Amino acid sequence: MDDDLYLSIGNQTISGWTDVRITRGIERLPSDFELGLTELYPGQLDRVVVQPGDECQVMIGSSLVITGYVDRYTPSMDAHSHTIRVAGRGKCQDLVDCAAMWPNGQISGTSALDVSTKLAAHYGITVACDVQNLRPIPQFNLFLGESCYEIIERISRYSSLLVYDTPDGNLTLAQAGTVQAASGFQQGINVQAATVQYSSDQRFSKYTAYTQSVQMYSDIGVAGNVIAVVEDTGVKRPRERVIIAEAVQGFQDLAKQRATWEMNRRIGRAAVVTLTTDSWRDSAGALWTPNTLVSILLPQLKLADESGTGPVTWLIGEVTFQRNMQTGTTATITAMRPEAYLPEPTALQPMFVDGSTIPQ
């Protein structure tokens, strides 16, 4: 299978890159790349025409990886060689870098998909969502100077959605993936190196969540706390954590959601695997893709199922495709339990934070 890397800019396609790094993930926006070419005798690379701001596509063989823009073009030379480096990011960089444009600065009566679509359209980006019947967004105001991404990330958390870009450069709102790769990673088969970080310092035996009105002395304030408690039975000694949920009135189940999310996320992130494999693709020829479930068996690092002999099924959070003269072609994968990627429950509107308390 063709795994050469191609950078397409206008009617020019450049291949033969000697140094490649492409990173995509479900907790990063946008995807980004950095490519390098080296030749011993200056001359050939002069024909490579690249300008910062150029629209581009990065492909591995026939598989599209990033659609975006060139951010930096860096040629250099010395007595022995001539090199160029090209760095860029996906189209969604404009959502991260640029201010949100919204008439009147007030949003109400809509969904995370609708808001994201309207904000992204200003910068020529489309939005897709894999969830139906999204929770309605209560009225809230934008802060002057906020970026599109800051708003989209906030309303997506409220709707329990992850936010990341796709190879075509557009935005996707999604929950933790349920699609599994055709193959996984196994010690002695396709794992060149691996590290698993096990931790307990960020886990607690009991999580107590409170919500309290910040206007408890006003006519509309709520002086009483809403208390929710969840326990992590995997922590054997008393370790307690108190959480102030983001709601301040109404939405009384937010405290329980917030405590449960805190516990599950910390359990999920108590084990993180980072591994290097010798291929950019699974056994079916698909590129390793963020938000895809994958089986992992590393018995020497005590990463296996409860029987100790079978694989665990974790979610790919980030993948970096690399190629250089020192290590050849590799992919570095970061994966955790799916619950590690659950978005944090949040409230958007400080006075009325769920459907039952929004005035009609």
Rank of each mutant, 00 (worst) to 15 (best):
W102S: 10
Q186E: 14
Y41R: 10
W314F: 06
T260M: 05
E150H: 09
E344Y: 01
P359G: 09
Q106E: 15
A340Y: 02
L40A: 14
T13R: 00
I9K: 11
A181G: 05
G105M: 11
Q57V: 15
Q187L: 11
I84N: 01
T313D: 01
M101R: 15
P350M: 01
V294P: 01
W280Q: 02
C148K: 05
L315K: 00
M336W: 03
F33W: 05
D94Y: 07
G124Y: 05
E39I: 09
V65S: 01
I9L: 10
Q192V: 12
L7N: 03
Q57D: 09
V272F: 03
G285P: 04
E262Y: 07
Q12F: 12
K236D: 14
S159I: 01
R47N: 14
E240N: 13
L173S: 10
N170W: 14
D2A: 12
T274C: 09
D97F: 10
V48F: 10
V196G: 12
A79Y: 11
V242E: 11
W314I: 00
I14S: 02
C56N: 03
S160R: 07
L348Y: 03
M325P: 04
S160Q: 09
T292K: 03
A340G: 06
V319K: 00
P75R: 09
D46V: 06
I333D: 01
A335R: 00
L297T: 02
D2V: 12
K91A: 15
M101Q: 15
T38E: 11
H122F: 14
A331F: 10
A121W: 04
L348Q: 07
V312S: 02
A87S: 15
M351L: 15
Q180F: 03
S213H: 08
G145C: 13
V230W: 05
L29K: 01
R154E: 07
Y41D: 14
T276L: 08
I84K: 05
V20N: 02
T110W: 04
G25M: 09
Q44L: 14
Q197S: 13
A228Y: 00
T172I: 15
T289V: 12
D201S: 13
Y198E: 08
A228K: 03
N104D: 15
A304L: 07
T178M: 13
A304N: 13
Q57S: 14
S307W: 07
A255T: 12
D19C: 12
K206W: 07
Q300V: 04
L119G: 04
L303C: 10
L315W: 02
I137V: 15
F33N: 00
D130F: 06
V48Y: 04
W314E: 04
I316L: 06
D168R: 07
T83M: 11
I14W: 04
N11A: 14
